[in-house]
Computed example of a mutant assay.
Amino acid sequence: MAASSSASANASDTPPRLFDRALVRRRRDRAAREFASYDFLHARVADDLLDRVESVARDFPVALVLGGGGAVGRALKTRPQAAAKIGTLIETDLSPAMAALGSGPAVCLDEEALPVASESVDLVLSCLSLHWTNDLVGALIQINHALKPDGFFAGAMLGGATLTQLRQALLAAESELKGGAHARVSPFADAFDMAGLMGRAGFALPVSDVDRVTARYGNAFVLMRDLRAIGETSALTQRPRTPAAKALFVRAAQIYAERFADPDGRIPASFDILHMAGWAPHESQPKPLRPGSAKARLADALGVKETSAGEKAGG
């Protein structure tokens, strides 16, 4: 009975398999053929990641890139300051075809089972791939373990209100046509606590922020074409197994335009890019002070008279 109870507890700790990783790989393989013509989000993120690299006053002999379809390597060619800090850049992807788009050494690997030796790289950059992982914290822990002590990680993933207009239009169209709706846009992580997730994964000095991007398209069909072209269409495990009728997408495009179109008729698409950064722990890093160990009083720093809690109550 004890063994059975333990097995049950372990099963309950397993994250749900929201995404079909094999389908993600196939769709990214397909997207690789024309990816460079549609990778404006990846190019933007690659530049932002290299901004963070340039802001760090140290060099990185071995750097590992997760995802991006070669966007980081392409950006590095135009960023001499960042390039001077990085020795060997290894670009990777879940998709072999996407990995092959890198400009240097490339590896096909899975972020959910990162095949990288512990404490073997100085820098890890993640370019719009972690939102497809079923266990985000688990992936971050593996990245942390791959870094040498005091190694640096900077990543970006889609989250928050990404594609909220498309999600609403598809739900409304399917509810109208069929009296119910399936989830046809992948769920995204909330933006509010990425630094907290980094802390759970063991990173020191974690920080996070959100880059909110609005792209405009002629209509919803152009948006959906571009999402296919970068391998970002839904890969939910619990997705409908029969193709949706064309009428669903026609009605969704109409609803999208009715609810969200700008005065010129073009439609906006929201993308929340969640940025995170942190360091593999090292004894040289600053540590928070223990409670009660401060050597100066707050009242002195503010130039006010210190009053006890009892005095405040009595006054």
Rank of each mutant, 00 (worst) to 15 (best):
S5E: 12
S8F: 09
S8A: 14
P15K: 02
P15E: 02
A31Y: 06
R33F: 12
Y38Q: 09
L41S: 12
R44V: 03
A46E: 07
G67L: 02
G69C: 03
G69Q: 01
V72Y: 02
G73M: 02
P80H: 10
A82E: 01
A83I: 06
A83R: 15
K85Q: 14
G87C: 12
L94K: 02
S95A: 12
P96M: 04
G104N: 10
S118F: 11
C127W: 01
L128M: 15
N134A: 05
L136C: 05
G138V: 08
I141D: 03
Q142V: 04
Q142S: 15
H145M: 06
P149Y: 08
F152L: 09
G159D: 03
G159P: 02
L170M: 14
L170Y: 03
A173M: 09
S175D: 14
K178R: 13
G180E: 12
V185D: 00
P187D: 05
A189L: 12
D190H: 07
A191V: 07
A191S: 15
D193K: 08
G196V: 10
M198N: 00
M198W: 00
G202Q: 03
V210L: 08
D211V: 10
V213S: 04
Y217W: 07
N219L: 01
M224A: 13
E232M: 07
E232Q: 10
T233H: 13
S234P: 01
L236W: 04
R239E: 00
P240I: 14
A244S: 15
K246P: 07
F249M: 14
R251H: 11
I255T: 04
F260K: 01
A261G: 08
P263Y: 09
R266M: 13
I267D: 01
I267C: 02
A269I: 06
S270H: 14
F271I: 08
F271M: 05
I273A: 04
L274P: 01
L274A: 05
L274D: 00
S284C: 06
K287N: 05
P288C: 11
L289D: 12
P291W: 07
G292K: 07
K295E: 13
E306Q: 15
T307H: 13
T307I: 15
G315Y: 13
G315W: 13
